[in-house]
């Protein structure tokens, strides 16, 4: 087999899987983000620390994101809308999955591009029609992949990537969400 270099350390992931099979408590992670309201519908969100493998960690550096709404929403557009952050997460998660699965299956990738479109009926959030939901009605991800593989193998990469995707799961299945006032 020729050496495949998609840059994913699959061996480390496989080793982690074996270790965590016998240590489920170490597998419990907590991801965090904190938002601070600026004015209007503009807020700034910071992500730095997380918990996992039994201890606190920090990302190499703090990431700062601005969320706002576009001018057609009568806002200042200081950043993308919160619901766009969801598809940012989905696109990056599935793309990471494609690379990991390809590495594991010995498939050399040359390019991977994903475009995501989320269909959103804003009558829901405006309260204009109580039968319309607030969130996305449909999300469509289209991958364009150039790799040393057949179309069938590429489709299998994309399918397996969805099967193991945290964000795909979070969007397609219900999650308990608790929101409270401190």
């Amino acid at each position: 087999m020729t050496t495949v270099t998609n840059g994913v350390n699959v061996q480390a992931l496989i080793d982690a899987r074996e270790v965590l099979k016998g240590a489920p408590e170490a597998a419990q992670f907590t991801w965090r983000a904190s938002a601070k309201w600026n004015s209007g519908v503009h807020s700034t969100i910071k992500v730095h620390s997380f918990f996992g493998l039994g201890e606190e960690h920090n990302h190499k550096q703090e990431s700062v994101f601005d969320a706002d709404h576009p001018e057609v929403f009568a806002a200042e557009d200081n950043g993308i809308t919160p619901i766009e952050y969801l598809i940012v997460g989905l696109a990056s998660c599935l793309t990471a999955g494609v690379a990991s699965v390809a590495e594991n299956r010995g498939i050399q990738l040359r390019s991977v591009e994903a475009t995501v479109e989320g269909a959103h009926d804003i009558r829901g959030i405006l309260g204009a029609d109580s039968d319309v939901r607030n969130g996305y009605n449909d999300i469509k991800v289209t991958f364009t992949i150039d790799a040393d593989a057949s179309r069938q193998e590429i489709e299998a990469l994309v399918a397996q990537s969805q099967k193991r995707s945290a964000v795909f799961d979070a969007l397609t299945n219900p999650t308990n969400v608790t929101v409270e006032v401190a």
């Binding site: 994309v158 399918a159 397996q160 795909f168 397609t172």
Partner: peptide, 25 residues
């Protein structure tokens, strides 16, 4: 896939298309 029951409603996964793909492939 039936994920859970909330307020008397069955909630199903939106990932149907992918379980079809996995099985077809």
């Amino acid at each position: 896939r039936w994920a859970t029951v909330r307020d008397g409603c069955a909630l199903f996964s939106g990932g149907l298309r992918n379980v079809f793909s996995l099985a077809d492939l």
